[in-house]
Design a protein around this nucleic acid. Structure first.
Lengths: 204, 204
DNA sequence: GCGACTGTACCGTCCAGACGGTACAGATTG
DNA sequence: CAATCTGTACCGTCTGGACGGTACAGTCGC
């Protein structure tokens, strides 16, 4: 549930950009700074110079770790996806695909504001270059594969996942004006549908 | 200065596009061209010069009709939304919100490839500037208002709309790898859910 | 002395927008 | 009906700035 291993390589360090050698965790530090910047200023203004400034480095320093801006963006996306995947896999001992669906629903609906806005900004940037979305594509391929394993429940389970994604996307872009109460009602309806898919239940 | 001789003229401009005043429809023509370009090259490469070229105008000519690039994008989005709205409202005599939900589902699921890719490209561009998404926000506000009018059916109806939007968005970004058969199954499940919401039906 | 940077200078490119000019279509006037 | 004026619809060019990326000499610390 709580924040866990976020980085692909190294654990994030504490704040305060030290003066001397920042050693290996500088990469993570740059990624942190880039995320923070994106959260504050949006994807449009994300520039190498700004990232450097936010990280307390020079532009050259950033380019030392990420040879291109694209490489930086790719790493940002990969880290976010790793985080999300770890998050909803660690939720419970998710044995069955139904459990996973429920866990996914829960995590997605209760992702914190930060992750959401981060996703929004990233998506905005990445959507311009389809190639950069490949990791996301892989991510969803996994989801769809899980849905297929549900056999006859595929249809309704897919509806559930799509609804979750739909809400996520709409909220990402600030297009939803659902109240928290309405959101509660919605979640209730989703859970009811997930339960209806549970084994030993009724037919489709 | 100088007389009729010192003409360093560059071709008396016998272009393919009709000469003289192109009258009022030039605006629409530019929008068409911009859409076409976006469909072919994606949002990333959409530039005023490219739009001008695609429309058979000069950049200055485009700027005459759309004072800024932002204005052009806004108009493109507005036109697309108008089209979509007209599309699914003209589908049937949509009297009840349920009918509208069904119509919306149908239209969204069967939008042609062109509209989808257009939406994708536009979204990619617009997502970078939250202000430009305002028309979209208005659009969804209407949808949510309709859902609220369904009273006790709000939850499940919202699930349906969100699923439709989720699929649309995923397909927009090329993140879905559902087969057409699976898509059929999905649609079947969605229709079943809509029917379950119909008045005179069952449950709450 | 090597790896991890800093700092600056610079290049090539892209692009939005400004600007001045051109072409022509009426309306006005004598 | 011709000369003149006016407004619309454009064309072509230019500028100013941003940005990604390169190059490279120098610094700091282990």
């Amino acid at each position: 549930m709580a924040q866990s291993h976020v980085d692909t390589e190294v654990v994030p360090s504490d704040r305060t950009p030290p003066k001397g050698t920042r050693s290996t965790n500088t990469r993570a530090h740059i990624l942190d700074a880039a995320e923070e910047f994106v959260l504050e200023h949006g994807g449009r203004e994300l520039t190498l110079e700004q990232v450097a400034k936010a990280a307390g480095l020079s532009k050259g320093g950033v380019l030392y770790h990420f040879p291109t801006k694209t490489a930086l963006l790719q790493t940002m996306l990969a880290r976010l996806l790793d985080y999300v995947e770890a998050e909803f896999q660690a939720g419970v001992g998710d044995t069955t695909p139904q459990d996973r669906l429920m866990a996914y629903t829960h995590v997605s609906l209760h992702a914190n504001e930060k992750d959401k806005r981060l996703g929004a900004a990233l998506l905005a940037v990445l959507a311009e270059d389809p190639k950069l979305l490949e990791p996301l594509r892989t991510f969803y391929r996994k989801r769809f594969a899980e849905l297929r394993s549900l056999g006859p429940h595929f249809g309704r389970a897919t509806v559930i996942l799509l609804a979750v994604e739909g809400l996520f996307m709409l909220e990402l872009l600030g297009l939803s004006d659902l109240s928290s109460q309405e959101r509660g009602t919605l979640e209730w309806a989703l859970r009811a549908l997930v339960d209806a898919e549970a084994p030993g239940g009724n037919d489709a």
